[in-house]
Design a protein around this nucleic acid. Structure first.
Length: 563
RNA sequence: UGGGGCGUCGUCAAGCGGUAAGACACAGGAAUUUGGAUCCUGCAUUCGGAGGUUCGAAUCCUCCCGCCCCAGCCA
């Protein structure tokens, strides 16, 4: 019926917005923002938020701002800003000219702070960090009021101005909101609004030595930008009363509403920026963009498409349930998208030499092979065939177990788009006994894979012509961890890293058409998986392909069960 | 022992008092020049538990249980 309407996402946040639209809450206006702190590379968890915020804005004819929430100079940098901009763009979202920084609001925020002091709702506190903690009380016991809580407005104004001018050392004074030290919500026990940090900021340099805290800066930044729906994650639920309190004290008119949803957790990986940073710093991975990382830059390098990630974000839904999404769902989205888009080519990862005894020496044929079995529009390419080929080591077994129906002595199989071949002998390494060469005969009547007499074979193998093959390296990636939730296990999370999350194969052989591939190009290596030319280390002389994802592998399952 | 949230299939998730959608996963089968893709089929008598209200409850009420978040001058 109405495909467009029925396929629009729906969730509790959109329900709230629908209702606001109905009641005319913001005159029918919807404005959202994606507000990352530039202290790490964005990961797929951020993608969920990006898709939500930009998706909602688009759906309701509103706009979504990109705002760097940079209120703490330590750990923030331009490198991270650039990665965020690059990745949100790559995901396919556009913020027009609305690229904002909380640091651009520093002066305005300072003025708001002065206003709060003048209202008698904020004060400069001289307690040390330890003392503030003691005065704050505990979860079950109320806090005590600071001895500095009742300073005069004039004194507070004077002190706060002197904090700004750099008169006091780090940690000696803070500006606090004057709320309620006995509140059961610890967030409301005179929260800190400003701290002194004589630290250079990556954007404002040394212009400031006091920096606003998240709770004070965020609600006002939202207000300044005219945000209507301020969507954040569940852990900020406790902060919502404070978000509202600052706005109640300081502004008039229609105000943003904070709505919290559950952040994304994915099985077999970790999402915390701190943990990811640790993996980078300890060189467990090669960098933020290592293809094993759940970062958007890592996934891009691995070969994931923005469409697949967006589809995934849509499919997981939005709720307030703490959840751990099955990695298999992401993998399914990636395969689903690549299945449609990727050109099929042949590549042999672990080569095994095949000699076709009855094929004339020196003869070369070319087969025209379609790039996609279901989509002729994707064209075709020529693949050379000759007497000596490579096939996959896994495609031959001297003593085949039950249900293995690939090549074995005396058995006939089809070479994809080529001939039927029959194994007539093997050559073994005299020392190891390992099969190093397989001898076959071909049936000239079966050219391009059909037997005129209707004879069937059980398997079709991919292959490359030995003399024409392009040597390459393949990096086989798998899940980063070997347990669903490494953080919930005993001990350090790094002890649960998957030792086989990267396997490097240096003697792969590709069909000649792949010589033209450039970084970022994606293919399906038939029967193996989806691969992408690496954008970091691949060169024309030494091509490197990253395995994005294996194909689903029914044989692997059978083999696994047999063990 | 305080406050704020959340509990529907293995994993997500619809459901908003009228008799448990869908997706992934899993298991069978069909077809197949990728053991891929595709196509069928199966997969919650029951909604954390116990009471109660009602002709009727996953949806309303009561009590209980479990999990997550909050005591950074982080966000």
């Amino acid at each position: 019926m109405d495909q467009t309407t029925s396929s629009l996402p729906s969730d509790f946040i959109r329900d709230i917005i629908d209702n606001d639209m109905k009641t005319g809450k913001h005159q029918g206006r919807v404005a959202t923002r994606f507000p990352p702190e530039p202290n790490g590379y964005p990961h797929i968890g951020h993608a969920k938020s990006v898709c939500l915020n930009f998706g909602i804005a688009a759906q309701y004819g509103g706009a979504c701002n990109l705002r760097l929430d940079d209120t703490d100079p330590s750990g923030e940098s331009m490198e991270y800003v650039e990665s965020i901009i690059r990745d949100v763009k790559w995901l396919g979202f556009d913020w027009g000219d609305r690229l904002y920084y909380a640091s651009d609001y520093y002066e305005k925020l300072y003025q708001y702070a002065l206003a709060l002091i003048r209202k008698g709702k904020a004060y400069v506190c001289d307690l040390s960090a330890d003392e503030i903690r003691e005065y704050r009380g505990t979860l079950t016991h109320p806090g005590n009021e600071s001895p500095y809580r009742n300073r005069s407005i004039e004194e507070n104004l004077d002190l706060f101005e002197r904090m700004r001018s750099g008169e006091f050392a780090d940690g000696t004074r803070v500006l606090r909101a004057r709320i309620d030290m006995t509140s059961p919500n610890v967030t409301l026990r005179d929260p800190i609004m400003y701290r002194i940090k004589k630290e250079s900021h990556y954007r404002t340099g040394d212009a400031w030595c006091i920096y606003p805290m998240y709770d004070f800066a965020h609600c006002l930044s939202d207000f300044i930008e005219g945000i209507t729906h301020s969507i954040c994650t569940l852990e900020f639920e406790n902060n919502r009363p404070l978000y509202d309190w600052f706005l109640d004290q300081l502004v008039e008119g229609s105000r943003p509403r904070q709505i919290e949803f559950a952040r994304l957790n994915l099985s077999y990986t970790v999402m915390s920026k701190r943990k990811l940073l640790e993996l980078v710093e300890k060189k467990v991975v090669s960098g933020w963009d290592d293809p094993q990382m759940p970062t958007l830059s890592g996934m891009r390098r691995r070969g994931f498409t923005p469409e697949a990630i967006r589809r995934f974000c849509e499919k997981i839904g939005v709720s307030k349930n703490d959840s751990l999404i099955d990695m298999a769902l992401l993998e399914n989205c990636v395969r689903d998208d690549l299945n449609e888009k990727a050109l099929r080519v042949m590549a042999v990862l672990r080569p095994l030499r095949v000699v076709i005894d009855n094929y004339p020496e020196g003869r070369v044929e070319e087969f025209d092979c379609p790039y996609h079995p279901k989509n002729a529009k994707m064209g075709s390419r020529k693949v050379p065939f000759s007497r000596e080929l490579f096939i996959e080591q896994d495609d031959f077994m001297e003593i085949p177990p039950k249900k293995f129906f690939r090549l074995a002595p005396g058995r006939e199989v089809r070479l994809r788009y080529g001939y039927f071949i029959k194994c007539v002998g093997v050559v073994k390494d005299p020392d190891t006994g390992e099969v190093v060469e397989v001898h076959c005969t071909y049936d000239p009547e079966t050219r391009s894979g059909f037997a005129p007499n209707g004879r069937k074979v059980d398997a079709t193998l991919h292959w490359v012509s030995a003399a024409h093959a392009v040597p390459a390296e393949a990096r086989l990636y798998d899940r980063l961890f070997c347990v669903r939730d490494a953080l919930s296990e005993e001990g350090d999370f790094t002890t649960y890293l998957n030792l086989k999350s990267l396997e490097i194969l240096k003697s792969c052989r590709l069909e000649p058409s792949l010589a033209d591939a450039v970084p970022g190009d994606r293919f399906q290596f038939e029967r193996l998986g989806y691969f992408c030319v690496d954008s970091g280390d691949s060169s024309e002389k030494a091509p490197v392909f990253n395995r994005t994802m294996t194909l689903r592998d029914a044989w692997a399952k059978i083999a696994e069960k047999g063990k």
